[in-house]
């Protein structure tokens, strides 16, 4: 892949066009059965996440239970994965056993990525050994801004190797990259270096995922697919907290990459609050009455 990338030039991005295009996806009308289907699909694509210093085993267990059975009364799918810090992977793995819900772990000195490469590889291996099915790594934004693109490329490739069978999601942290051109370049580097998913943000920096940025990354995936024939996934993370926005993202996904991508194998939402919002809406559709967050578990 590195050979193919050698002469690759990331295309320039028309930022205004990008925003206009992204806004168009907000105008589709998704109602009734189609809405319910979209809500359930979105729920099934969630990486239920807790990444806080104060995370305890108890909290992770609680989150896993929610992941496996988001609602006690409704007929809803499980979420896609539970995303935790490496030290809590084993707890999540044990709890989720046999449920089909994956365990994702952040690694590589999340969220800043400011550490030695050897340590990052070690951390990745640790998380995989603990049982992580998926690794969410962060790119070295400092190096990226210094123009050391080869370093960033090689680092992703090295982490991919350390992952073994685990799927690798590469967090670009678009809020720290600056321009759309930079985001596109980072996306291309990550895709050619072996990322299974490219992901917008850590959730620790604002702005996190936005529709234009996600669209831009989806287009990078599309171009990568036409160049290599390989399918890659997308994960917008952070800031998507209401059901309506989630559905708009699905519309965007469908109209940019097509039905092939409409499953949690190729698309994820990194969110913690979104799950409850979706449940609220699904129950609203089931009962016909507006719901209150008071009647849903917080974690």
């Amino acid at each position: 892949m590195k050979e193919k990338f050698k002469n690759f030039q990331s295309p320039k991005i028309d930022q205004l066009g990008l925003i206009e295009r992204a806004n168009r996806f907000k105008t589709r009308s998704i109602k009734k059965e189609a809405k319910v289907q979209a809500l359930k699909l979105a729920l099934n694509m969630i990486d239920l996440t807790t990444l806080e210093g104060r995370d305890t085993e108890g909290k992770v267990i609680q989150l896993c239970n929610k992941a496996m059975r988001p609602d006690l009364e409704l007929d809803v799918p499980t979420v896609a994965a539970v995303c935790v810090y490496p030290s809590l992977v084993a707890v999540a793995k044990k709890q989720l056993k046999g449920s089909g819900v994956k365990v994702a772990s952040v690694a590589t000195a999340f969220p800043s990525g400011q550490s030695d490469q050897k340590l990052k590889i070690q951390e990745t291996k640790y998380a995989v050994n603990e049982g992580a099915d998926e690794i969410d790594m962060v790119i070295s934004r400092g190096k990226f801004h210094q123009g050391e693109y080869n370093y960033v490329f090689d680092e992703i490739a090295a982490i991919k190797e350390a992952c073994g069978k685990a799927r690798l999601k590469v967090i670009l942290e678009t809020g720290e990259l600056g321009t759309a051109d930079q985001v596109r370049r980072a996306s291309d580097i990550a895709l050619y270096a072996g990322a299974d998913f490219i992901k917008t943000s850590t959730g620790k920096i604002s702005p996190a995922a936005t529709m234009p940025t996600t669209l831009l990354m989806l287009e990078a995936i599309r171009d990568f697919y036409s160049a290599t024939g390989e399918q890659r996934g997308m994960k917008p993370a952070g800031g998507i907290s209401d059901a309506k926005t989630a559905i708009q993202y699905l519309v965007m996904l469908h109209e940019t990459l097509g039905s092939e991508w409409m499953s949690n194998k190729w698309f994820r939402f990194g969110a913690s609050r979104l799950a409850n919002e979706l449940l609220l809406q699904i129950r609203k559709q089931a009962t016909g009455y507006y719901q209150s967050a008071d009647y849903f578990s917080k974690d």
Partner: peptide, 8 residues
């Protein structure tokens, strides 16, 4: 009906 049924 929507007011009486509203959970909030």
């Amino acid at each position: 009906e929507h007011m009486a049924g509203h959970m909030e």
